[in-house]
Simulated scan of single mutants.
Amino acid sequence: MDCCRQGFELGFRTFVLQGGEDPALTDEQLIKTVAAIRKDYPECAITLSLGEKPRESYERLFQAGANRYLLRHETYDATHYGQLHPTEMSSAKRLQCVKDLKSIGYQTGTGIMVGSPGQTVDHLIQDIRFIENLQPQMIGIGPFLPHCDTPFGKYPSGSLEQTLLLLSIFRLMFPSVLLPSTTALATLAADGRERGILAGANVVMPNLSPQEERKKYTLYNNKASLGAEAAEGLILLQNQLQRIGYEIAFTRGDFSETDYKELEKREL
């Protein structure tokens, strides 16, 4: 709650709660946290990115006040999905979770890792078609980056150029979709975040977590960081974006359904 208070004072109107699929983090704890944020900051959007859960859990979190949920499907191809995940996980379950989120009423996000081990152009085409049919409100596109303590620790990173190309493709497909320029891009290149914006991304996510907590959430090696607390980091980010002619909009950033309605009209 301290992070939300600080973020609100800085002008943030969307809070993102992101984490791994930790069985120690119960639904009751999450619901209590979401409800508290909703009570104290009723005008703000709450976005969750907490992995696969039963539909009932998604429903309870939605009822507690969450607005958005990002769950990357990662790869649509079932065989490729199996190569990337433990045997107890399945592509069918992941895709069902994404569909559940959308049917519940979340502004739903999905997406892919670009350049993940074993990925082919055919896989990417399947992903694009799946996302086209899903019509999500958010799309998370980022390069694969290895972590030394995983089975894929020695694999090469995904391509910055291919990631930027896909950002541009999705921006053309969905003119108003929420499309983040991720920290992973800044990890591949010092100006990666700015290049993501220029390629079509329209969301940046400054980190409100305290410095001492950030090292507990290392998704990949050499993760880019502004190396500053929230207020200082926001100023640095503003300066980076101003250099390419952009300003930060301090709004909820809700998705507009207008684009999809226009698309449906054209298809008819």
Rank of each mutant, 00 (worst) to 15 (best):
S90L: 03
Y58V: 03
Y81K: 08
L25N: 14
E88A: 05
T26V: 05
S49K: 14
L70K: 14
P86W: 07
P23Y: 03
T26M: 02
L61P: 01
Q63P: 11
A78D: 11
P42R: 06
K53S: 03
T79W: 09
Y69P: 11
E56V: 07
E88F: 02
T87R: 13
I31G: 08
A36Y: 12
T47N: 14
E88K: 14
H85F: 00
T33W: 13
I46P: 08
S49N: 11
Y81Q: 00
F62M: 10
T79S: 06
Y69G: 08
Y69A: 01
T79A: 10
Y69K: 11
S57T: 14
T33R: 12
G51A: 03
A66L: 06
M89A: 05
Q29V: 10
Q29F: 12
T33N: 13
T75S: 06
S57I: 08
L48I: 01
E52S: 15
G51K: 12
E74H: 05
A35F: 12
Q83W: 14
A64Y: 08
K39G: 04
Q83A: 07
P42Y: 07
L71W: 04
S90K: 15
R72A: 00
E59L: 15
G65A: 09
L84Q: 10
G82S: 04
R38I: 02
K32V: 07
C44T: 14
P23T: 02
R55A: 02
P86S: 03
E52A: 04
G51Y: 00
R38E: 00
S90I: 00
A24L: 13
T47H: 10
L71K: 14
L70D: 02
V34H: 15
R68E: 10
F62T: 09
E59I: 15
L70H: 00
R38P: 01
A64L: 10
L48F: 01
I31S: 11
H85V: 01
T79N: 08
A78K: 10
I46C: 08
A45S: 14
Y58C: 03
C44N: 10
D27H: 09
Y41P: 08
L70C: 05
T33M: 12
E28H: 14
E52R: 15
G82A: 03
S49Y: 02
T87E: 12
I46T: 07
P86I: 00
L30Y: 03
V34T: 04
P23V: 07
S49I: 03
K32Y: 09
I37M: 12
D40S: 12
I46W: 09
H80W: 06
E56Q: 13
N67S: 07
S49V: 02
R68M: 01
F62C: 06
S49M: 07
D27L: 15
L61R: 13
R38T: 08
L50K: 14
L48T: 08
Y41M: 05
H73G: 05
I37A: 08
Y81S: 00
E52Y: 13
D40L: 11
D40E: 09
G82D: 02
L84N: 09
L50P: 04
G51S: 02
K39E: 11
